[in-house]
Design a protein around this nucleic acid. Structure first.
Lengths: 329, 329
DNA sequence: CAACGATGTGTAATCGATTACACATCTTCT
DNA sequence: AGAAGATGTGTAATCGATTACACATCGTTG
């Protein structure tokens, strides 16, 4: 590998001058500059990032901690983050916790040792230890999707969006509404969305039957199984609609309903959240909420940038969303 | 930030001993070791990656150059790569060319300056310049999906898989088979799959009508538009099947056909490639080919690891695939 | 024309780790 | 008992950049 010293030697100047040329700091003479430029071109020299980092403490890398790398939501968000980071000439270091909370801490530490300039955390469930770790953390951390106390967080409008879905369902005349959710250890998807469901039911004096509610784990299959449990457990009093907290689970639920010969939305209406690409192309097309994940990614990206620049950003902002009415309701 | 010097001071030893303790190289006394371990625990010290890299030339990071970050294929592949890299304690640096060939070179250079230990390249179209760049590249590069001369490459069985699809279509009695492809600048998806199509047609003495062929750009919409062009341009002699080179374009094509009241597969059969999640849940479910992208990711990962270890791996291997027969054919 | 600021370049310290080499003890073996 | 090896630790050079400081030259100004 060619180093700055090689360049200096070849161009007949000191490495100081080369460095000045590269960062255009200080003065560099016309002639010297040209010689350096030439040599750099010929050699294809690029400064060693690690040496630069060692001196400047800036890596130009931000870390993203994802619950799962290969989901539509993740990749949309990453894409958004990528856009703003690219603009700033920053790279992204990806890590994947596979839904294991211990790994969140592990990766936080790892990103510290890699001296990431900042970290974006897409947590699912947030524990005591996580918060403590971040508390004394030497590099800026921002969160997306979950509200983490003491951390600048950008959250989705989970409660409002879910309420809108419920409003739509009820507006269409549905009264016996079921619910397919996820574990309440997930504050946003688990708690908030379920809260919106029960609140809406109560507000309209509708009965919330325990047996109309089932829990999945985000997967399509778990939606299928949850729907099955609801149907088989309520032969005499079937719900006429089901609110699923993710599109994937809604897809599974629809799959089961279709298999059993139920018409959607005739017999049972189905709604989801997330606006997966799939949602538009399954039959019937799925009513859902679009969260603008990519924009959210851009937004946390900006948020992190500002936090890194020292701007106190601890106020959490809600992000816009859009209800998409299709044929499943 | 605490450094190795701080630890040394606190533990009352020299930084050499601390380093030896950390890497357990050389001897470290029982007592000294305990004191060091203690101090490290108390301080939460982690060695500076950049300093280590500067000395050892190893970053523990590999770069991935993707054509597009937010696609199902990309995220599956990345997930597979991630699995094997995690096992080796390596991190992943992601870059996204947004289908711009110039960026492939740009990112190659960038990853060089970041001293990635290796690079995995998912190229789409491969030019002269790219090859030259890699030729003299100081760090190991492997490719996935495209066969790049001089670079260890893992390619999918594009030709065979496409042939199987054609075989299936023809076996089902279809004779007037249309084709929705992508630009031939993409050797794998563009050329190979189209080659399999025309070869199969010729082998069976079937006419290949120019107007039955259309080109898209991977997007669902482009599949829709391509299908539209084929239908509107052939009112008198409609194809009775269409082979689409990706599931997304197949989805778009089906969408148009359904809109126009064609029955699938009754009037027109449709087949894709890729086994997108969606493929199983649209109606009718889409006949396609699963490429085991995640396993392919693991495989290139291993390939890169071996290349990094000095094992000459220039022989390209084909990866397995699986024909998935569903209801659209 | 002396003084001062602008311009151009070099010397050497520094960032935080690793590691070759040297040195001191302590065992163990003949 | 003396030599050879094992054990434990420290000194200092090194990796490739940035940057404070010093120095030289030149044009401008009062």
């Amino acid at each position: 590998m060619t180093t700055i010293n090689d360049i200096a030697k070849l161009a007949g100047v000191s490495r100081t001058t080369v460095s000045r040329f590269l960062n255009n700091s200080g003065y560099v003479g016309q002639e010297a500059g040209e010689r350096i430029a030439q040599v750099i071109n010929e050699t294809g020299y690029m400064p060693s990032q690690s040496a630069q980092t060692l001196r400047t403490k800036k890596t130009g890398v931000i870390g993203i901690i994802l619950p799962k790398i290969s989901t539509e939501t993740s990749s949309r968000v990453v894409s958004g983050i990528n856009r703003v980071m690219k603009r700033e000439g920053m790279q992204i270091l990806l890590t994947d916790t596979e839904l294991d909370p211990d790994k969140e801490i592990e990766y936080l530490r790892l990103l510290k040792s890699r001296q990431a300039d900042g970290i974006i955390l897409l947590a699912t469930n947030i524990g005591e230890r996580l918060q403590q770790e971040i508390e004394a953390f030497p590099i800026p951390v921002v969160a997306l999707g979950q509200n983490i106390p003491g951390v600048p967080s950008l959250t989705y409008a989970d409660y409002d969006a879910s309420s809108d879905i419920m409003q739509l369902l009820i507006g269409k005349g549905h009264r016996k509404i079921g619910f397919i959710g996820v574990s309440e250890t997930d504050p946003a998807v688990g708690k908030l969305r379920q809260g919106a469901y029960t609140d809406a039911m109560k507000r309209h004096n509708l009965e919330v039957k325990e047996s109309w509610m089932a829990e999945g784990d985000f997967s399509i299959d778990s939606g299928y199984e949850a729907m099955k449990r609801i149907i088989t457990g309520n032969r005499s009093a079937l719900p006429d609609a089901v609110f699923c907290v993710t599109d994937r689970m809604a897809t599974g639920a629809m799959e089961y309903l279709k298999e059993q010969g139920f018409s959607i939305p005739g017999d049972v209406a189905v709604a989801g959240i997330g606006d997966a690409v799939m949602a538009r192309y399954i039959t019937p097309s799925l009513t859902t909420v679009n969260y603008y994940n990519e924009e959210a990614g851009e937004a946390v990206g900006e948020m992190l940038l500002e936090t890194m620049a020292g701007i106190k950003h601890s106020k959490k902002m809600m992000h816009k969303y859009r209800l998409i009415k299709r044929d499943s309701v």
